[in-house]
Design a protein around this nucleic acid. Sequence first.
DNA 1: CTGTGTGCAAAGCATTTGCAAAATA
DNA 2: TATTTTGCAAATGCTTTGCACACAG
Lengths: 145, 145
Amino acid sequence: MVIRLDNITKVFKQKKLKLTPQRIAVYKYLQSTTAHPSAETIYKSLQADYPTMSLATVYKALKTLVEVDLVQELNVGEGNFRYDATVASHPHICCLHCHVVGDIEGITFDGINKDVQDYTDFDVYSNQVYFYGVCSTCKEEVLKK
Amino acid sequence: MVIRLDNITKVFKQKKLKLTPQRIAVYKYLQSTTAHPSAETIYKSLQADYPTMSLATVYKALKTLVEVDLVQELNVGEGNFRYDATVASHPHICCLHCHVVGDIEGITFDGINKDVQDYTDFDVYSNQVYFYGVCSTCKEEVLKK
DNA sequence: CTGTGTGCAAAGCATTTGCAAAATA
DNA sequence: TATTTTGCAAATGCTTTGCACACAG
């Protein structure tokens, strides 16, 4: 896993946003994981290294990162948001048992926004695709019982 | 729009759930609209006819209807849930400007759960597909300015 | 009649906001 | 130095819960 900070540096400079340790920490953490953590999870994960950072700051950092399109917000239907430092559109898959959220690479929906735009009277800009099922770990657990 | 109560009657009898006026009202209302209302909207819409029904009862009725698969819960990412009496899997399209949520009929993703199941190590049961854009009404409003 | 559902108010989470102090550019 | 951002606590919004009374089966 390669952590890149050149993009956050460039974008923040261009948008005249301040590059604080807190914002960098949140962005680095999101780049280091494929777990699609919630704000709470990010907060807890960073507490060891940033003990004074507050949960409100995590929320504010995430909001800023989403606004400048360095991070995307996911809503798998659990009542909270999850975050992903991969902003390119890609489907996600959620385990109904352990609530893990994974990326699906290889299957893309490129061109489908255009199809939907032609089919409806909307201008279509983006989409979110979520699959729901049971992951391999949870399948095994069920078998053991 | 045809309102059908035979399904709720059958399912509730089979699951030994009580068929109360409140539950019927919520289900009838959802069948009468394509607006994908929130609990709050359903509550307000039913207040004229059911002035004593509480918001908590609307939530409880919705939870029950979702559990017995007569209604599906949507989460377009606005921070609340919306409800749809059409339980067959179909994509939704959301206006980023006025937040209207529409159904997309005609484009289906049948078979794709199987593709994803073969591609990942999950058993895949369902999916949710959301498109985001600007509806025709909002496009016109923007032009007027 | 029995157990489930309703209505009310209070509680519970996730997220946002206001504001003084601190830190970036 | 001038803003912007942080951290704290309080506030907000959506949803759930507990409990006494009412009602469907």
